[in-house]
Design a protein around this nucleic acid. Structure first.
Length: 852
RNA sequence: GCCGGAAUGGCGGAAUCGGUAGACGCAGCGGACUCAAAAUCCGCCGACCGCAAGGUCAUGAGAGUUCGAGUCUCUCUUCCGGCACCA
């Protein structure tokens, strides 16, 4: 046996062993219980980042545990290969996105292989390959024919200089990232998936998904946002015609407190009123400038302008002014709201600003008038006041009565409203899956027939930032109508990359099938038993995948309707970021280049670069290209090996926590593996024998730690499993007695327990010490109940709730025996002198509290 | 702004059902080995008071429930994630 731990050689050797045996190839086998373990596939950016290493190590730990427990495990890998970064790289380097992407895939695949993950590479897929995206297109045409995919207009960010649509990410402080021009909103035709058709189902199923974190289910529930309320009509006259302005509210009980109405800038009433009012037209235009991201809109200063139109209150008949308000969203409800300033915070701020009346109609403890400033209590429900016939009614009774009266007048009824909007999938970009539609002057939008799929994306183009190159390429868009044969124009928009990632998990079951999207193998492997990925995907990706799985089930492609039985959301990997301020432009400096200065408490003040420039500390955050704070895991792997990298990342923090990168602690992980190696080197040489008592104590300690480790493993707290391995090694070293029955059992437990985390070194030592041919076949270690038996138990003794010491008692001692033991004990004599004992609380096996 | 989460020594974290706060590591300090350094090994390591025995305080802040609170309840602060065209 080599005297020193040399990760490079043993890792290569172990990987060659697994490759030669095809250890990780998965074959459908109905006789064995299956376990489909999936980590979110990476975007091929070129290099693995720390988040990837974390994600795939967590998945690999689970995969290897289940494999050793006898499950038929599938752990595949692929590439989420379409997307914006490839186009950005193309512009920067004048390389086609395809070439850049394929090169990146090759580089990252080598990195993944070097980490020794138990992956079935025969099932590898890439979403940019026609064999894959053909089925995106095929399913799209199916959904299109069913009406689950349809066309309508949508609002996008428009860069007026580059004449191009921008992603939200490309809008910085309301300006285009390349041109700096103020961004405008623009309405264009787009395709949508009717995810709202599944809103009720997607919501209801959450209650049955026990394997998902409550946190994620709650986020999805709020995102879907079912609210039950009332749709209310306010009549108005327009060019001598009677019209109705509809609003939706969940607080119909406050209807009598309505003092104004507000509509979104995109509302038809706003457009109509703006025609005769230049000032209003200017305001409506102002609202339409700027970016589309909801976070930006929500933080705008509340502004409004009257339209000059008045509506009639459906109950009181009062005239109410109609305003345009920039805080009203066209995309939710009716694009119009009733303004009840006394009981809604935003309406209140608006009314205060524009001196609109505030009428209090709900009794609340804070008083019946609404003074400044706003208090959250004003928005609470309560008994109606100042509301005529509704006075005295509680919330539900008031809503019921008002809804009934409105219904009788034809001016409203109860309604369910969803926050969830249909999923717009059109992207005016090149590097994505072409939408399989042909626009024909006489036949309209015609889906491409199956025999003409896939619509291939040309792979040689280089975008220049001024719109989609496909739209400038007649060879691509000139075609014939599949229906009438006349010349027609092919759609040049591509699909949102979320479409690609909404079904890839099922395709891993049958990536080689060129005749069908999915086959029977998908029903064997689906659903994914354990899905692992970043918490940042908690809503969009996971919700879209749930929708797609239902849509695929409806097509008869799958038997399951939920794709992921258990979900583990890993925390983000964070790092510090620093910038130097040069003429108002921030230059981001990689933390590896910064010497940090700290205050006396160790808090970071700032730092300087190696060449002496002052840098500003910008706090801690996700590793990102834009802040240049990514730490390359390859440096750690090259220096210490894959096992150290894997051990560090598991040991540093529990999977669901954020992980703050620190390269200092990597050294400690490496030291542990060296210590393990050194112990095994001297393991075979004989030492002094063990007494029975020592053997018993050693076994008790090792099996207790193992029991705890298995418990932690079940709740996916892997960092303490790594600690457990360290504790076992500490115990073995402390009781160093050479190779005997007890230490042999200890080492066998240690290597098996540790092997999912550091598979290479464990594989090597397992064979070297003669435990067997292949550790993967060894089976999972379970604690021996006999080793855990104890005759005496140590009780913690508290007096008046304060810990004062401990007391040994036989395991069999009951409450009365323990009480008399503790009364006589020296501890109680000392701490309870003179005070009468009122009560003695005994927690069996643990603690005795003497209440005085 | 809205939705979700987090906060424990100098640092990462542990504490299973409300029952010894700080397991296991990192950093630091002291020592052994060495001509020396690295590596390795041994010891110490929350704060304050005390020669010591020991005591008091302490889990972001403030209140509450309890024999007993890091854990439960309420209020607040700070940080992180998402907000529909980043993936």
């Amino acid at each position: 046996m080599q005297p020193h731990y040399d990760p490079r050689s043993i890792e290569q050797e172990a990987q060659a062993f697994w490759a030669q045996r095809n250890s990780f190839r998965s074959i459908e086998d109905p006789a064995k219980p299956k376990f489909y373990c999936l980590s979110m596939f990476p975007y091929p950016s070129g290099k693995l980042h720390m988040g990837h290493v974390r994600n795939y190590t967590i998945g690999d730990v689970l995969t290897r545990c289940y494999r050793m427990r006898g499950y038929n495990v599938l752990q595949p890998m692929g590439w989420d290969a379409f997307g914006l970064p490839a186009e950005n790289a193309a512009m920067a380097n004048r390389v086609p996105p395809a070439k850049w992407t394929y090169d990146n895939i090759a580089a990252m695949k080598r990195q993944l292989q070097g980490l020794g993950f138990a992956l079935d590479w025969e099932r590898e897929l890439a979403t940019c390959r026609p064999e894959y995206y053909k089925w995106n297109q095929w399913l799209f045409t199916r959904l299109f024919r069913k009406g689950l995919a349809y066309k309508k207009t949508g609002i996008v960010n428009w860069d007026p200089v580059d004449q191009t649509v921008l992603a939200n990410e490309q809008v910085i402080d309301g300006r285009g990232w390349r041109t700096g021009a103020p961004v405008e909103k623009r309405e264009i035709p787009m395709y949508f998936f009717r995810i709202t058709a599944y809103a009720e189902e997607l919501l209801a199923a959450l209650d049955r998904m026990d394997g998902w974190p409550e946190q994620v289910k709650l986020m999805q529930k709020n995102w879907i946002g079912k609210s039950e309320g009332v749709r209310i009509g306010f009549e108005y006259q327009l060019e001598n015609q009677k019209k109705v302005l509809w609003v939706f509210t969940t607080r119909a009980d406050t209807l009598m407190g309505t003092t104004f109405l507000a509509v979104a800038a995109e509302h038809p009433i706003a457009a109509f009123a703006a025609k005769k009012n230049a000032q209003l037209a200017e305001f409506v235009e102002e609202c339409k400038r700027g970016a589309v991201a909801e976070a930006d809109l929500a933080q705008l200063e509340k502004k409004g302008m009257p339209t000059g139109l008045y509506c009639t209150h459906p109950i009181s008949g009062e005239k109410l002014p109609v305003w345009v308000g920039n805080y009203v969203l066209m995309g939710y409800g009716e694009g119009a709201v009733m303004g009840v300033p006394a009981h809604d915070e935003r309406d209140y701020a608006f009314a205060l600003k524009y001196a609109l009346p505030i009428n209090c109609v709900i009794r609340h403890p804070a008083g019946d008038a609404v003074p400044q400033p706003w208090k959250p209590a004003y928005a609470e429900t309560g008994r109606c006041i100042n509301s005529g016939k509704y006075d005295g009614l509680e919330y539900q009774a008031a809503v019921d009565a008002i809804a009934a009266d409105l219904k009788a007048k034809g001016l409203g009824d109860k309604q369910v409203q969803w926050r969830l909007r249909d999923w717009g999938i059109s992207r005016q970009r090149y590097w994505g899956c072409p939408i399989p539609i042909v626009h024909c002057a006489s036949c309209g939008d015609v889906p491409v027939p199956d025999e003409d799929l896939p619509v291939r994306l040309p792979e040689h183009l280089v975008p220049d930032g001024t719109g989609n190159p496909l739209a400038k390429m007649p060879e691509f868009y000139q075609t014939q109508c599949p229906s009438c044969g006349e010349p027609a124009k092919r759609e040049t928009d591509t699909m949102d990359t979320f479409v690609d990632s909404s079904w890839y998990f099922a395709r891993y079951a049958c990536p080689d099938n060129d005749r069908a999207m999915l086959d029977a193998r998908a029903n064997y492997w689906m659903a994914v038993d354990q899905y692992i990925g970043g918490i940042e995907h908690a809503i969009l990706h996971l919700l879209y995948s749930r929708f797609f799985t239902r849509a695929m089930k409806a097509e008869g492609l799958l038997e399951v309707e939920e794709p992921f039985t258990n979900l583990l959301t890993q925390g983000m990997v964070l790092a510090e970021s620093y910038y130097s301020d040069a003429q108002g432009r921030r230059e981001w400096i990689n933390p590896a280049e910064v010497e940090v200065t700290r205050d006396a408490r160790g808090k970071i003040l700032g730092g300087r670069t190696r060449d002496g420039r002052e840098v500003v500390y910008d706090g801690i955050g996700t590793m990102s290209k834009s802040k240049n704070n990514g730490v390359d895991p390859q440096a750690m792997i090259d220096k210490y090996g894959a096992d150290t990298a894997r051990f560090y990342i598991i040991f540093a923090s529990p999977p669901t926590n954020t992980l703050e990168w620190s390269d200092e602690s990597v050294e400690g992980s490496f030291r542990f593996l060296k210590r393990l190696w050194a112990y095994c080197v001297r393991f075979d040489s004989s030492g002094p024998g063990m007494t029975d008592d020592l053997a018993k104590a050693t076994r008790f300690e090792i099996h207790s730690v193992l029991r705890q480790a298995n418990y932690d493993l079940a709740k996916h707290q892997f960092n303490t499993v790594a600690s457990a391995a360290m504790k076992i090694l500490n115990a073995l070293e402390r009781f160093a007695g050479g190779r005997n029955k007890v230490t042999e059992e200890g080492v066998s437990i240690l290597l098996r327990l540790l092997s999912p985390i550091t598979p290479h070194v464990c594989h090597h030592l397992w064979r070297e010490l003669g435990f067997g041919e292949d550790l993967l076949q060894a089976g999972w270690p379970e604690p021996d109940p006999a080793a855990l038996e104890q005759e005496e138990i140590e009780y913690v003794v508290q007096v008046g709730g304060k810990t004062r010491g401990s007391l040994r008692a036989p395991r069999s001692a009951g409450q009365p025996a323990l009480e008399s033991l503790v009364r006589e004990s020296e501890l109680v004599q000392r701490y309870a002198t003179g005070k009468p004992i009122r009560r003695i609380i005994v927690v069996p096996g643990k603690l005795i509290n003497v209440v005085v």
